[in-house]
């Protein structure tokens, strides 16, 4: 038996043996955690609108996002967020909490390698692609907007 065929068979055999992630509990946990984060965001929005009636909707949104980013960074620093993320999965990744955690965690981790080569370089090691896609996407959107 040639090795390519052997490897193909082995990969098929291993795939069949892989433990399956249980879909329903994962989705339920993600829904619960993600939903709670969004409820908290909505609570912030409503409270800020009540406290500062002069703020525009966009400004309220920014204040709410800053609050959530700030809290995520604090929770990451205290070592709580990795636990929450392991439990909630996509429920914590999809809201802006995932982005904030992905910036803070490598910054903490690589502090010992120095401010420039540690914190500043590694800070974007996980979120780098998100920023690249964001920038490229907005350029593309801008071009389309210009044409039509």
């Amino acid at each position: 038996m040639d090795s390519e065929k052997r490897n193909q068979n082995y990969n098929m055999y291993v795939d069949a043996k892989l433990p399956k992630t249980k879909l329903f509990p994962s989705v339920a946990k993600a829904f619960l955690v993600g939903g709670l984060i969004c409820c908290f965001g909505q609570l912030c929005l409503d409270l800020y609108a009540y406290w500062w009636p002069t703020l525009s909707e966009a400004e309220l949104g920014t204040a709410m996002l800053s609050t959530i980013i700030f809290l995520t960074a604090i929770l990451t620093g205290f070592g709580v967020f990795d636990w929450l993320g392991a439990f909630g999965g996509a429920g914590t990744v999809i809201p802006i909490t995932g982005f904030a955690n992905a910036i803070v965690s490598p910054s903490m981790e690589f502090k010992k390698e120095g401010i420039i080569f540690g914190i500043c370089v590694k800070m974007f090691s996980i979120v780098g692609p998100v920023i690249v896609f964001g920038v490229v996407g907005s350029v593309a959107a801008g071009l389309i907007y210009l044409i039509i």
Partner: peptide, 17 residues
């Protein structure tokens, strides 16, 4: 973890394998 995977405080899920 630091060398091969993700920062310790990253809230990711590990695959079952």
């Amino acid at each position: 973890e630091r060398q091969y995977r993700f920062p310790l405080e990253l809230g990711n899920q590990r695959p079952p394998t």
